[in-house]
Design a protein around this nucleic acid. Structure first.
Lengths: 339, 339
DNA sequence: TCTTCTGTCGTGCCCGTGCACGTATATCTA
DNA sequence: TAGATATACGTGCACGGGCACGACAGAAGA
């Protein structure tokens, strides 16, 4: 365990000077600085976390969180993760300010400005994909306010990290599961939210890649959109089942699982139907337990809420950036027995 | 954030007295103690982790780890977890002493005594199920040396926590997977390590419970033992396949997956064979990627190595016992696409 | 009454880091 | 040459908790 004091002793300077050198603050003689840096390097100095945390205790941190309005059961679980972690961080005098707003650029930017007014030191954001939002994130970065994106990423922004799913890999896993539960032969329908949402199309791309390569017996009858709406999902599934009496498998790449399943049940098509979907919200859990859904792939919404706060807190107190800029949560396969 | 100082001020005593009361050291007037305790309770005092860690810096901790000789690829992964966490803890002047010994009571007790000679402050142990080992664990507890068991638990001991799999639930998940990949109908063989090892029998119990309740079409032809030996596994599988030409599914409840799979390949029985097993060691991974094994259930060996150290360090520096005495690692389902 | 013992409690330092403040020396200006 | 200014560096305190030491009072013994 190398301390600043040790480095100071070996460099024949005081702790303060070492501090100035290693943290680039104040003015130091270039030669002295060079020497200190060399010694610190040689000794492999890593700031002591306990000391850092204690020193950080003085300033009260405020972290802002902006996510969708949680009318969505998935985001309710994300919120649970946020709340749990917020409670934990409260012990370190760190306050978490949550704003849940509608999913559009203007509302997001308004919410960010509001949080800026409250003098936040960091921000967790589920970004709406818009150049204005990118600009706003970069503005925050300029002001020294780090941003972590969650659930969905945004390109071109200088956010310090992204925590979320790897949608393409999730789709691949779904494809593999479909191969396994159908034995490699089936006539299937794919139901997605929207072709405009990158997440959904990425999932379908992964799914199709896998079945084309490893399960040529899986025939895709149709790809339909439900715009993440339960009732539209019901309608669309109903129509699909009617026009395709031979269909015996369904892949839900987005929300609307509940509506789709209801349609299957109402039309008495549950028998020999193989269903793979995403997320383990309550209604989905029930359908898995009932045996209607073979398996669901959970993206750990709780973790998607909690982890970004962890990363930000670490960065704000220790200055250490996350080891990985992109932090994928595991896509865990859930069946009736391990829900 | 409540501090000792605040409690002291409100109780009209000094920090030292509050410290004595809350940590039960030294002598304090019972009335004063009562008052301090009440105030601490009311304020919901939780010792500050940073402060605690800083104070703990003075005494260098030593934690002992005893696991099997890692000729086993699973325990190699456990060791990776231990090493990674040890490196992390080294930053706090905490040394981790590892002993890997053969799996019997005498050797374990000898190793523990050795570590005692090195004045360890805590111990991580994969306990051999023997009354002498129980007694030894309790002796350590008496001496103030906390013990965390990992991978397998031991009854009647006063270990502060257990980190490992829920074998019964793992078996249930395996049963569910077998139902899914076979479509609910198959003639299967079960290969286990030994009927003397609790873990293995628990897994089989979970597996059988599930298939009896949810997949009556799954017929168990035989349950065989391979004593966790690859070559015995090869022989036993070979014999099973020969005597059961109709067999089209295999469940490996223990080690020896590689040997068993080799037998299947050599006898040209890979086609239409459904295999479910445990752990994702390299040879198993390869068989999953090759499509021979449908799915494997991983018990996160890395975490089983790392987590116990975390718990012990937390306890030794802060005195906080793990929230849950029994910490199950997730049984994650791994298929070709999410390995 | 003086000493000794014991129970009770306050004080100060330590751990490692950040940071405000103070000070010494060198350079520049009037 | 005195004074202002800038550069380079040392010092001390804060953060929260552990712990050693010592102070003080009351009781017991001589």
């Amino acid at each position: 365990m190398v301390t600043i004091k040790e480095i100071a002793d070996l460099s024949n300077v005081s702790r303060g000077t070492v501090d100035r050198v290693l943290n680039n603050r104040g003015s130091v003689n270039p030669q002295t600085a060079q020497k200190v840096r060399e010694i610190a390097e040689k000794l492999g100095y890593k700031p002591n976390k306990a000391g850092l945390a204690l020193a950080a205790q003085k300033k009260k941190l405020r972290i802002g969180v902006i996510i969708f309005s949680p009318d969505n059961p998935f985001f309710e679980k994300v919120m649970e993760g946020v709340s749990a972690k917020a409670e934990e961080l409260a012990a370190y005098d760190c306050t978490v300010l949550v704003r849940s707003v509608t999913f559009d650029a203007a509302a997001q930017i308004r919410a960010i400005s509001e949080l800026q007014g409250q003098e936040i030191h960091g921000l967790v954001l589920t970004p709406y994909n818009d150049p204005d939002v990118v600009a706003k994130i970069n503005e925050l970065e300029q002001l020294g306010i780090p941003v972590v994106t969650t659930n969905t990423d945004i390109e071109g922004s200088r956010r310090i990290a992204y925590v979320g799913s790897n949608y393409y890999e999730g789709g691949r896993t779904a494809g593999g599961l479909m191969r396994l539960v159908t034995g490699g032969t089936a006539s299937l329908g794919i139901i997605t939210g929207s072709s405009q949402v990158l997440c959904h199309t990425q999932r379908i791309a992964g799914f199709l890649d896998v079945i084309q390569k490893t399960a040529p017996g899986l025939q895709v009858l149709d790809i339909m959109k439900n715009h993440d709406d339960e009732f539209e999902s019901y309608e669309v599934t109903r129509h699909f089942l009617k026009t395709h009496p031979e269909a015996n498998a369904l892949f839900f790449a987005a929300g609307g699982v509940h509506g789709g399943c209801k349609a299957i049940l109402n039309m008495n098509r549950a028998k020999n139907m193989h269903i793979i979907c995403f997320d383990a919200v309550d209604t989905t859990r029930q359908m898995v337990l009932d045996g209607l859904i073979s398996a669901t792939i959970s993206q750990q919404p709780w973790k998607q809420g909690a982890r970004p706060l962890d990363l930000l807190f670490e960065y704000l107190t220790t200055g250490i950036l996350p080891a990985e800029e992109i932090q994928y949560v595991d896509a865990t396969i859930q069946i009736r027995e391990n829900l």
